[in-house]
């Protein structure tokens, strides 16, 4: 055990029993002194964070502080080189592939096929995890993408409607943790209002959301908790 690990041994994650009769609800995200690198650059220099189910957590910090890196680590895209982390009860070192299938990361792009309709996009993304037709309809309902709107090609939608479609795809994919990177970027005023309403509804339905944003006033009003990210350090 190296010196740093020994120093933080009191913060090591407890072993999970995985039992269904465990009365204690597991956190959705649990990071302890996580270090992650991008190339040779330490993008995350010790992140300790705990996110409980149903929370909307705003990651706040200047450009380059590591907000996006926190999201990418939680999505299983960046390996943890030191420290310990669990997402949805899965180990961030050994279960990254499984984690990827259970979280939804939405960046500036929506990941949609613009020649396909709203419902075809949601159906496609749902089908990648074996979602049923009922689940796809439920996802469309939840994001109010019903009626004629469901049959409109994505290229004809407004930016806000596209973002809603992308979120419906996350719902259809059964994403248990939503990781949103600057979700308001590129949206006009009505698109931003639409997105806020969607996130409020998601939170009311029990979704866990982590948002990296510079829109502090707007996102702060939605968040149940604000976590500062400074120079790759996170405490929350």
């Amino acid at each position: 055990m190296d010196r740093d690990t020994a120093e933080h041994s009191s913060e090591r994650l407890p072993e999970r029993t995985g039992g269904t009769d465990d009365p204690v609800v597991d956190p959705v995200v649990e990071l302890v002194e996580v270090v992650a690198v991008l190339g040779a650059f330490p993008a995350l220099a010790g992140a300790t964070l705990r996110v409980e189910p149903g929370e909307i957590v705003l990651l706040r910090g200047p450009n380059g502080a590591g907000k996006t890196t926190v999201l990418r680590v939680c999505a299983g895209l960046l390996p943890v080189v030191r420290g310990e982390g669990r997402v949805l009860g899965l180990d961030l070192t050994s279960d990254r592939d499984t984690i990827r299938t259970r979280v939804g990361l939405l960046g500036h792009a929506n990941g949609l096929y613009t020649d396909l309709t709203v419902s075809e996009n949601v159906r496609f993304w749902g089908a990648t995890v074996g979602a049923t037709a009922e689940e796809v309809v439920a996802a469309l309902d939840r994001l109010a993408l019903t009626g004629r709107l469901a049959d409109v090609p994505v290229r004809r939608l407004s930016a806000g409607q596209r973002r809603r479609t992308a979120l419906a795809c996350l719902v259809a994919r059964r994403a248990e943790l939503w990781l949103l990177d600057e979700p308001h970027a590129g949206l006009d005023a009505s698109g931003r209002d639409e997105l806020d309403a969607t996130l409020r509804q998601a939170a009311a339905s029990g979704a866990t959301v982590m948002v990296a944003s510079h829109e502090l006033e707007r996102t702060g009003a939605l968040a149940t908790r604000v976590v500062d990210v400074v120079a790759g350090q996170v405490r929350g």
Binding site: R100, L105, G107, L112, Y113, T114, W125, V154
Partner: peptide
């Protein structure tokens, strides 16, 4: 082009497909 226009290829990769 249809995969990269709106970041779908990245999304597929991120989703663990």
């Amino acid at each position: 082009a249809i995969e990269t226009d709106d970041g779908a290829l990245d999304a597929l990769r991120v989703a663990g497909v």
